[in-house]
């Protein structure tokens, strides 16, 4: 008697559970291929990095004795030490940091100044200059490769740090301007007006009022410039001669294929890790800005 009244909710509960279970199962079944595909790709990216890491932690002789699939039997950091010192990866690393930081700071500053003028100041010829800057977006970089090389050569700039900076500063200018002008245009005028009334001069208006407001836009530009500079390959390939000025991308290329260091794969893998880690950390820290900035950049351009 008492059982009947208690069983019914239990049965209902069981039915509900079963229903929910079936739903879960169905959902899981429909989503399984999605998970499989996405998972496989994600795994390939992660495993590739782990493989490079493992390879960099074993002596080279082991690689040839046990093959690429074997885990290191003897763990060593010697490859990193050798790569850093002997193979000049330390020098390349320093150069890469220099090119990335100076290239980024310079081009962001240049683009911010220029974008501010073009976005907020009315003066004769403004539109003409604006379009002049945008022309470059249409032209593939290879067109000017040879004339620009000889321009730099005649200026005595080939094989200097400055040439890398100059090309970084001007290379991304058009695109950065395009992004930042759009950004500055969205800022309200009232702030500038009231700053002027408070006695600020033009520089103060720009530096103290507008630039802080433009920070999100500047951050986007900066992150992209930095990642681009970190990975830059062609400019140093064309303009640099002296290996002591090479960035990592070019230095590793030389280490990999120059017969000087053949068969020192594990050291090369150590060099690769040193190249990957900073950019990976930056990516994981600034993930949101990078993914958002990316879509802003690409979809507008």
């Amino acid at each position: 008697m008492t059982t009947e009244s208690t069983v019914t909710p239990q049965v209902m509960q069981q039915q509900r559970d079963r229903q929910a279970q079936q739903d879960r199962l169905r959902r899981w079944l429909t989503e399984a291929p999605a998970y499989a595909l996405l998972g496989a790709f994600s795994l390939s990216a992660i495993l590739a990095l782990i493989w490079v890491l493992l390879m960099s932690l074993r002596p080279v002789k082991e690689l040839f004795t046990y093959g690429a699939w074997a885990l290191p039997k003897e763990w060593t950091l010697q490859n990193y030490v050798d790569a850093w010192r002997e193979m000049r990866v330390g020098q390349y690393f320093f150069n890469t940091v220099l090119y990335s930081v100076v290239g980024t700071v310079g081009s962001v500053f240049l683009a911010a100044c220029t974008a501010y003028i073009l976005a907020r100041v009315k003066f004769p010829g403004r539109n003409f200059i604006y379009y002049l800057f945008l022309i470059s977006l249409m032209i593939p970089g290879y067109l000017a490769m040879v004339p620009r090389y000889f321009l730099m050569k005649n200026l005595g700039l080939v094989d200097t740090y400055l040439v890398i900076f100059l090309i970084a500063w001007t290379g991304g200018l058009s695109f950065n301007l395009f992004l930042l002008i759009n950004f500055f245009e969205t800022l309200p005028t009232e702030l500038e007006e009231s700053a002027l009334i408070d006695g600020a001069n033009a520089w103060q208006i720009f530096w103290d009022i507008m630039l802080p407001l433009a920070r999100p836009g500047l951050a986007t530009v900066a992150i992209f410039m930095f990642m681009g500079q970190w990975n830059e390959f062609m400019t140093p390939l064309i303009y640099l001669r002296d290996a002591s000025k090479y960035p990592l991308a070019l230095g590793l290329q030389i280490l990999s294929f120059g017969s000087t260091y053949s068969a020192t794969y594990t050291k090369l893998f150590a060099g690769m890790m040193l190249f990957i880690i900073p950019i990976l950390v930056i990516y994981l820290v600034f993930k949101r800005q990078i993914t958002e900035g990316l879509t802003v950049g690409a979809l507008k351009g």
């Binding site: 100076v102 500053f109 400055l162």
Partner: peptide, 20 residues
């Protein structure tokens, strides 16, 4: 940050200018 950035710029120009 901005000050630091501008100093870096100047330093960079100096480093670059010294090279040639």
């Amino acid at each position: 940050v901005a000050q630091l950035a501008s100093w870096l710029m100047i330093a960079a120009v100096l480093v670059g200018a010294c090279a040639p």
